[in-house]
Write a protein that binds this DNA or RNA. Structure first.
Length: 112
DNA sequence: CGATTGACCGAAG
DNA sequence: CCTTCGGCCAATC
């Protein structure tokens, strides 16, 4: 049973729970929610996220650590700017030491 | 309502 | 390194 109506809601909730100075990937979120093959839906969720306020979409990148969604922000450098502000270095639109800053919801949040 | 697109992922060549 | 393909599903045209 998969409540896709709640799926988007869950995505936003997970993203909100991303600690400062950490980043995660769309796939990891999707996997955490049990829809590993629907990572694109996470992307769509992010697309809708811009209407929300507590959704730090800048902390969500693709599995390469690349800022694929930067073009969707109000300003192109907004995403990189926010990340660098949190102590994450960006180089060539990619997160430096991505693995080091990577935050896996399935590990950090985990299930009870 | 059919076809296309998309802030993805992974595998294959 | 790059391109192509299959998969998944909502939103858009």
């Amino acid at each position: 049973m998969k409540d896709y109506s709640n799926f988007f809601n869950n995505v936003y909730e997970v993203v909100r729970n991303i600690p400062i100075g950490r980043v995660t990937s769309y796939g990891s979120i999707a996997k955490f929610l049990g829809v590993a093959r629907s990572a694109r839906m996470v992307g769509w969720a992010m697309n809708q996220a811009h209407i929300l306020e507590d959704v730090p979409a800048h902390r969500v990148v693709n599995r390469n650590g690349r800022l694929t969604g930067k073009a969707h922000f109000a300003e192109i450098n907004q995403m990189q700017k926010l990340l660098e502000k949190e102590g994450i270095k960006i180089e060539n639109d990619e997160v430096v030491d991505f693995e080091k800053h990577f935050w896996d919801p399935s590990i950090e949040l985990g299930f009870d």
